[in-house]
Design a protein around this nucleic acid. Structure first.
Length: 346
DNA sequence: GAGTCGTGGTC
DNA sequence: TGACCAAGACT
């Protein structure tokens, strides 16, 4: 029933048009904790720039991170790059073909290994992601005792249900069901293809979350002509230390310890995992001193270089809102965005 | 096993 | 507006 439902209702996604294990791998890593809609555009750009595992392995880490900028969880990009080099060095450039072997690659965990193995190589092994967990928990009332089922229980139940003839399709169908029908808040039980088998019909206790705290931050946007050319503008950026726990080695605007006595040119809210940052951006002109920790690299970047360096998501957001940085080309419907929409208030 | 790591969309 | 949360991995 699920296998019959899937072809009719599956979304048309770029990575469903390929059987290239490398591309499946890229898509799975990008999709980790990241929405499909966000990944689509990034996947396309990434695979255009790095069309093969070898091209990725040969790339500089900075160029990989630049393409990842804004996607979040930058450790994924580093581990992906490390894994690509490892595959070239130790596996002759071809991905391992079993979940057990794939699992040994950095960044390939309990979900991603079976996902690649089943989708790209047809190994009969079930995936358990957030969707599958929710679907199974509801379908079989696995939290009837008030406890969330363990990973082992979920994997066992999923493997029991798996169709060994079409493991890749089955796995994607389970995830698709969770993503489009068996939704977290309001499951669409009336159109669910497995409604008659469902023990709960949507009852489900969500997992507890860690609390969000609010913080404030001020940043400086300092622009000046680039190499004396009045037609080109450069922006001052600082590089986060390689030792930083958060976003190491990525470029951002200089942060101000205190908000200066002037009106900000932009206010934005930016959520970073467990913190909500209320950010003010001030125009710099050399009057506002910036004190960066010793050893921190500072550099003036011309506008056109900004797309080529690993910026933090917040820096990208600020530079795009203030029209310093061009927005990435709009793909959908071929409708070019008129520049300069979403202007900040004066 | 719980904390941590980013971000943008949605309601 | 603010809380929720997405095809998780790692420590």
């Amino acid at each position: 029933m699920l296998l019959a439902w899937y072809p009719e209702h599956a979304r048309d996604l770029p990575w469903r048009h390929t059987r290239d294990p490398y591309r499946i791998w890229i898509s799975e890593v990008m999709l980790q904790q990241t929405r499909v809609a966000t990944v689509i555009e990034r996947y396309t750009r990434f695979t255009e720039k790095f069309p093969s595992l070898l091209s990725l392995a040969l790339a500089r880490q900075e160029d990989v991170l630049a393409l990842w900028s804004g996607l979040g969880y930058y450790k994924r990009a580093r581990l992906l790059h490390d894994a690509a080099r490892l595959v070239v060095a130790e596996h002759g450039g071809s991905l391992p073909q079993t979940a057990a072997e794939l699992r040994k690659l950095p960044g390939v965990g309990a979900y991603t290994a079976p996902a690649i193995a089943s989708i790209a190589y047809g190994e009969p092994i079930a995936v358990v992601d957030g969707n599958v967990e929710r679907v199974l928990t509801r379908l079989q009332a696995l939290d009837a005792d008030g406890q969330r089922p363990t990973a082992g229980t979920l994997q066992a139940r999923a493997d029991e249900l798996l169709d060994p003839e079409s493991p890749g399709i089955f796995n994607q169908a389970m995830m698709e069901l969770g993503a489009t029908i068996c939704l977290p808040r309001t499951p669409l039980c009336t159109v669910c293809p497995v409604y008659v088998y469902c023990r709960t019909r949507g009852e489900h206790t969500p997992r507890p979350r860690t609390q969000i705290v609010s913080r404030q931050a001020s940043y400086l946007l300092w622009r000046r002509p680039f190499r004396g050319q009045t037609s080109r503008v450069a922006v001052l950026l600082v590089k986060r230390p390689e030792s930083a726990a958060l976003m190491p080695g990525m470029w951002e605007l200089p942060e101000l310890p205190e908000p200066p006595e002037q009106q900000p040119i932009l206010r934005v809210r930016h959520a970073i995992t467990t913190s909500n940052y209320y950010v003010s951006v001030f125009a710099g002109d050399g009057q506002i001193g910036i004190t960066t920790p010793s050893g921190t690299e500072r550099k003036w970047f011309p506008e056109r270089k900004l797309t080529e360096i690993p910026l933090t998501g917040l820096a990208r957001k600020i530079l795009m809102r203030l029209d310093v940085m061009a927005k990435p080309r709009e793909v959908r419907r071929g409708k070019a965005l008129p520049g300069g929409e979403d202007q900040p208030p004066a």
